[in-house]
Amino acid sequence: KLPPGWEKRMFANGTVYYFNHITNASQFERPSG
Rank of each mutant, 00 (worst) to 15 (best):
Q27R: 06
N20H: 05
F28N: 08
S26V: 15
T23W: 05
Y17F: 08
K8I: 15
W6G: 00
K1Q: 14
M10D: 06
Y18Q: 00
S26Y: 13
A12S: 12
G14M: 04
M10L: 11
N20V: 01
M10N: 09
Y18M: 01
F11I: 06
S26E: 10
E29D: 11
F28L: 13
N13G: 07
N24F: 10
P3T: 04
P31V: 01
A25H: 13
I22E: 11
L2H: 02
P4Y: 14
E29W: 08
N24P: 01
P3M: 04
F11L: 15
N13D: 15
A25W: 08
P3H: 04
G14A: 02
V16R: 03
F28K: 09
K1E: 15
M10V: 15
P31R: 01
E7T: 08
K1R: 12
P4T: 09
N20S: 06
S32Q: 13
T15R: 10
Y18S: 00
A25S: 11
I22W: 09
P3R: 03
K1Y: 12
E7N: 03
L2Q: 02
Y17D: 04
R30A: 11
P3E: 06
R30P: 14
F28E: 08
N20E: 02
V16G: 03
F11T: 15
F19H: 08
A12T: 10
N24H: 12
K1P: 15
P31W: 01
L2K: 05
E29P: 06
F19S: 01
S32M: 13
G33R: 10
E7F: 04
I22T: 09
Y17W: 08
E7W: 03
S32P: 11
K1T: 14
M10S: 11
Q27G: 02
S26Q: 13
N20T: 01
T23A: 05
K1S: 14
N24G: 15
N20D: 05
E7K: 04
M10A: 11
Y18G: 00
N24R: 08
G33W: 15
P31L: 01
G14I: 03
E29F: 08
N20L: 02
V16K: 04
E29R: 06
K8Y: 09
E29V: 08
G14K: 03
H21A: 12
G33K: 10
A25R: 10
P31F: 01
N13F: 02
A25G: 07
Y17R: 01
F19P: 01
P31N: 01
Q27P: 01
G14F: 03
A12K: 11
H21I: 15
Y18N: 00
N13W: 05
G5L: 03
M10G: 05
P3Q: 05
R30W: 13
N20P: 00
G14Y: 02
R9H: 09
S26F: 14
A12D: 12
H21V: 15
I22P: 02
V16Y: 12
P31G: 01
K8Q: 15
P3G: 06
N13K: 02
G33N: 12
T15K: 12
E7L: 04
S32F: 11
V16S: 08
F19L: 05
H21M: 12
K1L: 14
K1F: 13
P31K: 01
K1G: 14
S26G: 07
F19T: 03
A12F: 06
R9N: 04
W6K: 00
K8D: 05
G14L: 04
G14N: 05
L2A: 03
W6S: 00
T15Y: 08
I22A: 08
A25F: 09
E29Y: 07
A25L: 13
G14S: 03
P3D: 06
S26L: 14
G5S: 05
R30T: 08
R30G: 04
V16A: 07
Y17N: 01
S32K: 11
N13Q: 04
M10P: 04
F19E: 02
G14P: 00
H21L: 14
L2T: 03
I22M: 11
G33V: 13
G14V: 01
Q27F: 05
I22K: 07
K1I: 14
N20Y: 04
W6M: 00
Y17A: 03
R9V: 10
N13M: 02
A25M: 14
F28G: 06
N24Q: 13
I22S: 07
P3I: 03
V16F: 11
S32E: 13
Y18I: 00
M10I: 13
Q27E: 05
G5Q: 07
H21E: 09
A12E: 13
F19V: 07
V16L: 07
S26W: 15
Y17G: 04
G33S: 13
N24L: 13
A25T: 14
G5E: 09
P4E: 13
N24Y: 07
L2V: 04
G5I: 03
R30F: 15
F11W: 11
N20A: 01
L2F: 05
Y18E: 00
W6Q: 00
F28A: 09
E29M: 09
W6N: 00
N24V: 04
I22H: 10
L2I: 05
K8M: 15
T23Q: 05
R30Y: 14
S26P: 03
T15A: 10
E29I: 07
S26K: 10
Y17H: 04
V16W: 10
P31Q: 00
W6T: 00
K8W: 08
K8P: 06
L2N: 02
I22L: 12
Q27Y: 05
F19Y: 14
T15S: 10
K1A: 15
Y17S: 02
W6F: 01
N20W: 02
A25Y: 08
T23E: 05
V16T: 10
S32G: 13
S26R: 09
Q27D: 03
V16H: 07
T23R: 02
Y17V: 07
E7M: 04
L2M: 08
P3L: 05
I22N: 10
F19K: 03
V16M: 06
N20M: 01
Q27K: 04
H21F: 14
N20Q: 03
P31E: 02
E7P: 00
N13A: 04
W6I: 00
M10H: 12
R9E: 03
G14H: 03
G14Q: 05
S32H: 11
T15P: 02
P4L: 11
G33L: 13
N13H: 04
Q27W: 05
K8L: 15
G5R: 03
F28S: 10
P31D: 02
A12Q: 11
M10E: 14
K1M: 14
F11H: 14
P4M: 10
R9S: 05
T23M: 06
A12M: 09
H21D: 05
F19R: 02
G5N: 10
R9L: 11
K8E: 15
K8V: 15
G33T: 13
F11D: 15
P4K: 10
S32I: 12
